[in-house]
């Protein structure tokens, strides 16, 4: 089983086989040599509870999976997002955008994202030989330990129970601290509403049982959306059968946008 790169256990909670409580305790004790016993004891009811529950009752934590190998850089996701979420047309406001990476043979790395990739990418003038090229769709990572939530002085940026990071536009004072605190450049300042904005995972669509607009329009299914706590959905499958990476893991933001086949050069 490939659990998310940062080793969190949404998956493992569900994938263990039913166990006898005594056996389990014994196994846990053996396995955890040195890990406080109390921790294992506390986890027993939790684990068993999970076993009894069907997937439908499992905790709902939204996440997105992106397969770099599938992305063809068409930019339809970025356009769909602008339409769906009333994002200004100017080329410097994006909830989601697509970057093109060209890694040259001489080690030089060239990145661009003209108009967020919406109009496609101009042909790349090859210089010095090309080693690898690929596209990277980017968006708010809906970090579990979100720096933007931490810094917001009034709590206008918050995490919902299902793990989406949202901005309350009626409440935001427009200080811009969150824009500075986001390591991924995922936030932008609305020039009309004068509040901070960002990707919402199309929360209004989720409420109606739909997936985010970018996921819906992706012609190659490079983007997958679902419940990370869920066992039987395409996202869970994606997380299990791919090597998963997140962006800037050293910052400990615990992103919930998971990349498969991500190159080490991507920042």
């Amino acid at each position: 089983m490939a659990s998310p790169a940062d080793g969190r256990d949404w998956e493992s909670r569900e994938t263990c086989e039913p166990v006898d409580r005594r056996d389990f305790l014994w196994e846990a004790l053996k396995a955890s040599l040195g890990v406080p016993i109390a921790l294992s004891v506390v986890r027993v009811p939790e684990l068993c509870g999970m076993q009894e529950e069907s997937d439908a009752g499992a905790e709902r934590i939204y996440g997105m999976g992106i397969d770099i190998r599938k992305c063809i850089g068409c930019g339809r996701c970025a356009q769909a997002c602008k339409n769906e979420n009333d994002v200004p047309d100017e080329p410097y406001f994006f909830n989601t955008w697509v970057e093109r990476y060209v890694i040259r043979s001489d080690g030089e790395i060239v990145v661009d994202s003209p108009n967020g990739g919406i109009d496609g990418f101009p042909p790349y003038k090859e210089e010095g030989g090309t080693l690898r090229t690929f596209f990277v769709p980017k968006l708010c990572n809906h970090c579990e330990e979100a720096p933007c939530v931490q810094v917001c002085p009034v709590g206008a940026t918050f995490i919902t129970d299902d793990g989406a990071v949202l901005v309350d536009e009626e409440y935001c004072i427009g200080c811009g601290y969150c824009v500075q605190a986001c390591p991924y450049g995922a936030r932008w300042f609305d020039p009309v509403k004068h509040v901070a904005r960002k990707c919402t995972f199309c929360y209004h669509r989720l409420a109606k049982g739909k997936v985010p607009a970018c996921v819906e329009v992706c012609p190659t299914s490079a983007r997958l959306f679902g419940n990370v706590g869920h066992r039987a959905n395409p996202l869970a499958h994606f997380l299990r059968f791919n090597e998963i990476q997140v962006l800037k893991p050293h910052l400990n933001t615990k992103p919930k946008v998971f990349y498969a086949n991500l190159d080490g050069e991507v920042r």
Partner: peptide
């Protein structure tokens, strides 16, 4: 003057986010 919504600035006093460095200012 720099805030997008200066008229809401009193919220910093009413509902401060105690984890925010700026809120405590």
């Amino acid at each position: 003057a720099h805030l997008g919504h200066p008229e809401r600035s009193y919220e910093i006093f009413l509902t401060p986010n105690r984890k925010s460095a700026m809120a405590m200012f």
